[in-house]
Amino acid sequence: MKARSKAQQRAAGAALSAKRGETKVGDLQGASKDMYDSMSEAELEEMASTSLKNLPDEAD
């Protein structure tokens, strides 16, 4: 699943970082925390790897 906005891509990146142990889970907030709990590392990696080009800042 590709990210639909820059905000969603960044949240996935933060959740992926925590999933890999690079950042603390306690530092996550909002959407990134929800993504951490509900998505696999592979799903997060796919979403976080979405190119930011032509993405809106926030989804509609």
Rank of each mutant, 00 (worst) to 15 (best):
35 M>D: 14
28 L>M: 11
2 K>H: 15
25 V>C: 04
49 S>F: 06
20 R>H: 00
34 D>E: 13
31 A>E: 06
52 L>R: 15
47 M>C: 03
24 K>H: 11
40 S>R: 08
23 T>E: 06
50 T>S: 03
17 S>A: 05
47 M>F: 10
50 T>R: 01
58 E>P: 00
7 A>I: 15
26 G>Q: 13
44 L>V: 01
41 E>N: 03
49 S>M: 05
59 A>K: 11
16 L>W: 00
3 A>N: 01
40 S>T: 12
50 T>E: 07
42 A>R: 09
44 L>K: 00
12 A>N: 06
20 R>P: 00
33 K>A: 13
39 M>P: 03
2 K>T: 09
49 S>A: 09
16 L>V: 02
15 A>H: 03
5 S>K: 08
32 S>H: 08
46 E>K: 08
56 P>F: 10
4 R>F: 08
40 S>G: 01
48 A>H: 04
37 D>T: 05
26 G>F: 15
2 K>C: 12
28 L>V: 02
16 L>N: 00
11 A>E: 13
53 K>G: 05
13 G>N: 08
51 S>G: 12
15 A>R: 03
31 A>W: 13
25 V>R: 12
7 A>R: 14
54 N>R: 13
33 K>S: 08
29 Q>L: 14
35 M>T: 06
9 Q>G: 07
9 Q>D: 12
35 M>W: 12
55 L>Y: 08
22 E>P: 00
40 S>Y: 01
53 K>I: 11
28 L>T: 02
5 S>Q: 04
33 K>M: 14
3 A>V: 00
34 D>V: 14
13 G>F: 12
11 A>D: 15
37 D>H: 08
30 G>P: 05
17 S>M: 03
3 A>E: 05
51 S>N: 10
15 A>W: 01
14 A>I: 07
58 E>F: 12
57 D>V: 09
19 K>A: 03
38 S>D: 13
19 K>Q: 05
39 M>K: 05
27 D>L: 06
42 A>H: 05
6 K>M: 06
46 E>A: 04
22 E>Y: 00
42 A>N: 03
10 R>L: 13
34 D>N: 13
34 D>W: 15
33 K>F: 15
4 R>H: 15
53 K>H: 10
13 G>I: 04
58 E>R: 13
42 A>P: 00
28 L>A: 03
48 A>F: 02
32 S>E: 12
11 A>C: 07
12 A>L: 12
42 A>S: 06
60 D>K: 11
28 L>R: 10
52 L>D: 12
8 Q>P: 01
10 R>G: 04
17 S>I: 00
28 L>D: 10
6 K>L: 15
39 M>W: 15
5 S>C: 14
4 R>E: 15
3 A>P: 04
48 A>C: 01
24 K>L: 11
38 S>E: 15
52 L>P: 05
34 D>Y: 07
45 E>Q: 06
13 G>H: 02
11 A>N: 14
15 A>F: 00
30 G>S: 14
7 A>C: 13
7 A>E: 13
52 L>I: 09
39 M>V: 07
24 K>G: 02
43 E>L: 04
13 G>M: 04
8 Q>M: 12
14 A>D: 10
22 E>C: 00
55 L>A: 09
53 K>Q: 07
53 K>V: 03
29 Q>S: 13
15 A>L: 02
44 L>I: 01
26 G>V: 08
24 K>S: 11
11 A>V: 09
